[in-house]
Structures are given as C-alpha cells and as structure tokens.
Amino acid sequence: MTGLEVGGVAHGYGVGARRVEVLHDVSLAVRPGELVALAGPSGSGKSTVCHLAAGIEHPERGTVTLDGRPTAELADWGEIAAVPQQHGLLAGLTVRDNVCLPAHRAGVDPTETFAWLAEALDLDAFVGRGVTDTSLGEQQRVAVARALVLSPRLAVLDEPTGHQDDDHVTQVVAALASAARAGTAVLVATHDSRVWEVADRVVRLDEGRIAPDPAPDPV
C-alpha cells in the first residue's frame, strides 16, 4: 500500500552563477488506487517532480521511491509508465505498435487491454496509421494508452489533456480514473480544472514548494 513517496526533495540545474534551484523540500505521496493532481503555475516545478517520480532523473537531495525502491532504479513500464509533454512516441511505428510496445517487450498479450484503451481513448479509427500521420491531440492519447497498457504500479503524466478538445478531455480523465480504480497510483501534472475535479487530492506547487491548502471559509 506504499505507492510513490517523495521525501524532502530539493533539486536544481546548472552550477555557479547559472544555478537554478527548482524544488525546495518537496514531499508528497500517491497511494495505489489514488489519482493525485499536481497543480501550480508554469515554472513552479511540476515537470521536474514528474521527471523525478518517473525515474528519469535522480533527486539531488531527498528520496523518491515506489514501494520503497528508488524510482530511478525502476526501468520496467509495468512498474512506472510516463507521458512526458513531448509524448516520446516512436516515429517508425503505427499507433497500435506504439501503444502495445511495452506489452510486447514484457512478453504480455495486450489484445484485450489494447481493445479497451482504443475504444476508451477514441483511437479505433486510426490504429493502423503511422503515428507521425496523426494530430498532436491524437498522439497525446496514444501516449496515454501506451502508459496504461500494462496497468503499471505508477503512472506519471505531464499535462496529458493539453492538446485535447472537451470531449477527448473527458475520455482521458475517465481512462486515468479507471486506471486508479484498478490500483495504479496516478500522478498528473496539470493546469486543467477538469482533472482536479476528479482527483482524489490536488497538491499545489508554488515556486518549487508545496503550497499550503487554503484556509476554509469561516462558518
């Protein structure tokens, strides 16, 4: 029941006069079966938290673990799957092959899960098309499907609705909520209030620090 644990993380880039401190003593958790939205203005550090949670980077100080193991040591997409802002799709493959690639590498038959994801994310009409022959919004949904095809222990998504129209936002949010209900710990960095509305919790970053929850309105 541990899930993702980010503990006392400080992180930055560059050295000397070029040094930029991005995160300051950030701590948060995402439990299995929980969808947590990471909110905050541009430049607040949301993408850096995503990179650390997904194991793309090592924290300079503090710890980032999934079920007690450093995320940077977990390379299996069945453990951690990510949707970066640039999507990270493979240009030489079709939509279907991009979605199914993690399953094929794991030796898992993705047929049933792929069929559900293709319908849920409105991919059916172009699954055989080269992924570079699709729109940005379509590519983003392909990346979401790829992240969920193995029902990972942790899914980390950076602005996964940024290129979607209203109907497709609803589909992406529903797919993420379904993944969480099935037991995946889901962390979503987003400006989209429609994601916040379905999240179990919203964690807010402000200038690289966890912002306190707003005080309740007086009775």
Rank of each mutant, 00 (worst) to 15 (best):
M1S: 12
G3I: 11
L4D: 03
L4E: 01
E5R: 13
E5S: 10
G7Y: 00
G8W: 03
V9R: 05
V9D: 06
V9Q: 02
A10V: 05
H11D: 02
G14R: 10
A17T: 14
R19L: 05
H24S: 10
D25L: 00
S27G: 10
A29M: 04
R31N: 06
R31K: 13
E34K: 08
V36I: 13
G40F: 06
G43S: 09
S44P: 10
S44Y: 10
K46A: 04
K46H: 09
S47F: 13
T48G: 01
V49D: 01
L52V: 13
L52Q: 13
A54H: 12
I56H: 13
I56V: 15
E57D: 15
H58Y: 14
T63G: 10
T63L: 07
V64K: 11
R69M: 09
A72Y: 15
A72V: 14
E73T: 15
G78S: 02
Q86N: 15
V95R: 13
N98W: 09
V99I: 15
C100M: 12
A103P: 09
H104E: 08
R105F: 15
G107M: 08
D109H: 10
P110K: 14
P110D: 11
T113E: 12
T113Y: 02
F114D: 02
W116A: 06
A120W: 04
D122K: 10
A125D: 10
V127K: 11
G128V: 11
V131Y: 13
D133M: 12
T134L: 11
T134G: 01
T134R: 15
S135Y: 14
G137M: 14
Q139N: 05
L148Y: 01
V149R: 10
L150H: 08
L150A: 09
P152G: 00
R153G: 03
R153L: 03
A155P: 06
D158Q: 02
D158P: 05
G162K: 11
G162W: 07
G162M: 09
H163P: 11
H163V: 05
D165G: 07
D165E: 00
D165C: 00
D167E: 12
D167Q: 14
H168K: 10
V169D: 07
A174Q: 02
A174C: 02
L176G: 00
A177S: 14
S178Y: 01
A179S: 04
R181D: 12
T184G: 00
V186A: 03
L187H: 10
H191W: 03
D192C: 01
S193M: 05
R194M: 03
A199Y: 12
A199N: 07
R201G: 04
R204G: 09
E207M: 09
G208A: 00
R209L: 00
A211G: 02
D213E: 14
P214T: 11
P214Q: 08
A215C: 01
A215F: 04
P216G: 10
D217A: 11
D217T: 09
P218E: 07
P218T: 01
V219N: 02
